[in-house]
């Protein structure tokens, strides 16, 4: 079963190809290399997690996939076409709560990208938006303004807004990092439930090993200075219920060792 999956994966075209991408950004004093010749292939329906400590360039890499940053070397291809500018086929969910536009209600926020891109016929906007809001469990708050919502609810709206556009790939930049631990845990499960229902493709950036293992079917492990990919691991068959199991702990330890060496143990 696994074997045939892998071989099929080898045959079909990747949905998203990151091909020898070197990214640099300028600060006031110097030019910093964020990633150095990183490559990976991501396939349809993948829950693809970029994992690494801060400064490993994972967020910068995600911004480059989003089209906000041009690689100085290599290229990013979506369905074989080179990514050169931001676009709504790669909807992004950010970490910051202010990604919801405060002057629009929840429903208007979900409709907004449809309106600006003309993605669906105008007559479908309201229904699609309402369905997306319902999907993330916020129907009661459809007409509320973002400032009246909690952090977790805001992130749910952002996820609903992104999914409503039916993007080729959903890009998530540490969307749960600013949430409290209990909310975070619930959001992870909700995201997996949504995936089971819609089977969207996503690239998810996180610095939490546990979050990566729970969410991913595929984990890219990155190290900093400059950002490089040191491993691409299969993480199918791990979910939250097994987080105490020996296999889970062993897998967690393995990634931990990759990142920090053998002498160090995970903290949180």
């Amino acid at each position: 079963m696994d074997q045939s999956d892998v071989s099929r994966a080898g045959l079909r075209e990747p949905l998203l190809a990151v091909d020898g991408v070197t990214l640099q950004y300028a600060t006031r004093e110097q030019i910093v290399t964020a990633t150095h010749r990183v490559s990976f292939d991501m396939f349809g329906h993948d829950r693809f997690v970029l994992l690494g400590p801060s400064g490993c360039g994972k967020s910068t890499l995600l911004k480059s996939i989003g089209g906000f940053l041009k690689p100085v070397e290599g290229e990013v291809r979506l369905n074989g076409r080179r990514v050169s500018a931001p676009g709504a086929d790669r909807m992004i969910v950010f970490q910051e709560f202010d990604q919801l536009l405060p002057w629009q209600t929840v429903l208007e926020n979900v409709i907004f990208p449809m309106r600006t891109t003309g993605r669906f016929p105008r007559s479908e906007w309201a229904d699609r938006a309402a369905a997306a809001v319902a999907k993330v469990g916020l129907s009661k708050f459809a007409d509320a303004f973002p400032h009246t919502l909690s952090g977790g609810m805001k992130q749910r709206v952002a996820i609903g807004r992104a999914l409503a556009m039916e993007p080729q790939v959903l890009l998530m930049d540490e969307p749960f990092a600013a949430l409290d631990a209990l909310t975070r845990r619930r959001m992870q499960q909700e995201l997996l439930d949504l995936w089971a229902e819609i089977r969207f493709s996503m690239v998810f950036v996180t610095h939490s090993i546990q979050e990566a293992i729970i969410l991913a079917n595929r984990i890219v492990v990155m190290t900093p200075h400059p950002g490089q990919i040191i491993a691409e691991l299969d993480a199918t068959g791990f979910n939250y219920d097994q987080s105490g199991s020996d296999e889970f702990v062993a897998f967690q330890q393995k990634i931990n060792d990759m990142l920090f060496g053998h002498e160090d143990t995970a903290h949180g």
């Binding site: 500018a85 910051e96 202010d98 600006t116």
Partner: peptide, 21 residues
């Protein structure tokens, strides 16, 4: 905020449209 700018650009807004919306 940088996030709101990126949200706008993520939806392909540019120029006058970006300013107005």
């Amino acid at each position: 905020s940088q996030t709101q700018r990126m949200v706008g650009r993520n939806y392909g807004l540019r120029g006058v449209n970006f300013v107005v919306k």
